[in-house]
Amino acid sequence: MDTEGLRSFVRAAELGQLRHAALELGVTQQAVSKRIAALERELGVRLFNRTARGVELTPDGQAFLPHARGIVAAVERAVTAVRPGFRALRIDVLGLRSAQAVVLHEYWRSHPGTNLDVVTLRVDDPRTAAAAVAAGDVDASFRTVTEPASLPHELRMIHAFDSPLELLTGPRHPLAAARELTPEQLRGHRIWVPGIAPRSEWADFYDQLTIAFDLRLDAAGPHFGDEVLLDVLAGSADVATLVGSRDRYIWPTGHDLRRIPIVDPAIVYPISLILPRTNPHPGLRGIVSHLDTLPKPAAPLWRPSWTVEGPPHAR
C-alpha cells in the first residue's frame, strides 16, 4: 500500500479540501486526487464524497481514517528513528556500572536534552563491537581493538580517557588500612579477577600488567556477578580485586570494603572510543568534546603497549 496515498488521504480528510492537502504536501491537487483514487481502487471502496465545499468522508472513509493515521504516524516514526540528527545516539559500553557509563551519565546530566541510548553489546571480542559500529547497529563503542591494524578502514579509534585502577579489599585484608599502594606492594597478594574472557581487551591488559609488575593474578572460576564478588571480598582475609576509579560499585554497609588508589606509578586502563571515520552521528561531537575535559591522572603512569595516544579531538 502506497504510504504517500495514505498520507494524502489523511491530510485531505483532516483539511476537507484536496487543494489544501496538496499545498501542505507540496504537490499538485491533481497528484493528490490520483493518489486517493488509486487507494480507493486498491481498497475497493469509496473514501470521499466530492461536494461543492470540498470532500467529505464516506462511512468507509470514516472507518478507514484512524487506521490510516496510525500507519502514517508509524512510518514517520520509523524514518525519524534512522535519520541522523533525529534518532537517538546509540553508544555501546562494557556495562552500566562501568566508567564509560558513568562518564556518559555525567554528560547527559549536563546536557539533559541529548537523545542518548546507552547499550551493552553482549560481546567480549572488541572486533565484534567494531563490526557493530561498521554495520550501523550502534553509532560508537567504548572498546579497544588492541591490534589497531585490524580495525576496519571505515572506522577510527580515539583515546577517550584513562581509568586509574584501585585495589578493592575487605576489612580483614592485610592491605586494607593503606591509604595508597604502589604496584610493588601488591606483589605476592592474590588479586582475583574472575571472568577474564579470551580475546578480550582486558585479557591482554591483565597479561601485560602481571608481566610488568610480577603480580599474582587469579582468573579462576566463573564470574557470578559483582554482588557475589563483593560478598567474597567482604569475608576474605587474602583476596582482593582491581576496579576502575570511576566504576560504580554499591555494597551493603556491613561489608566495609575499601577502595585504595594505586600510585608510583598509577596503573591506568586506557579506554578508547570506536566510531565511523566519516559521517558520524552529529551527537558524537558533544560526547568527544566532553571526553577531552575529563581530569587526567597524575604521572607517573603505567599503560599497556596498545594505548591509543593523543587527545580525543572531534573531527
Rank of each mutant, 00 (worst) to 15 (best):
D92P: 04
L215P: 02
R285I: 11
L275Y: 08
G85T: 01
D238E: 13
D117G: 04
D162H: 08
E227T: 12
Y206A: 05
W306Y: 15
V308L: 15
A134M: 10
A149R: 11
D214W: 03
R315M: 11
A299K: 11
D292Q: 11
G136P: 04
A135K: 05
R143Y: 11
R83D: 05
G5Q: 14
A52H: 12
S289R: 14
R122S: 10
N279M: 10
A219C: 13
R83M: 11
H255R: 06
E147L: 13
T146Y: 14
I271F: 03
V103P: 00
G310I: 13
A78Q: 15
R90W: 02
D207S: 15
A12S: 14
A219F: 10
I158F: 13
A78C: 06
R143G: 03
L209H: 01
L301Q: 09
E24I: 00
E184W: 10
D117M: 07
R90T: 14
P198Y: 10
P194K: 10
L291F: 11
P174A: 07
Y249V: 08
W302K: 04
L57T: 01
T114W: 05
H281L: 03
P174C: 04
S141R: 04
R41W: 02
P126A: 02
F142W: 08
P152K: 05
E40S: 09
G70D: 15
Y269C: 07
A197N: 13
H153Y: 07
G286H: 07
G44P: 00
R172S: 11
F142G: 04
L116W: 09
T146E: 14
I158V: 15
V268D: 09
G254L: 03
A101K: 04
P84Q: 06
A298G: 03
V10N: 03
I271E: 09
H313C: 13
A135L: 10
R69Y: 12
E42W: 05
D231V: 03
T120G: 01
A101C: 12
A73P: 04
L165D: 03
P300H: 04
Y269V: 02
R35Q: 15
R199W: 14
V239D: 14
Q100A: 15
G70H: 13
D162V: 11
R248K: 07
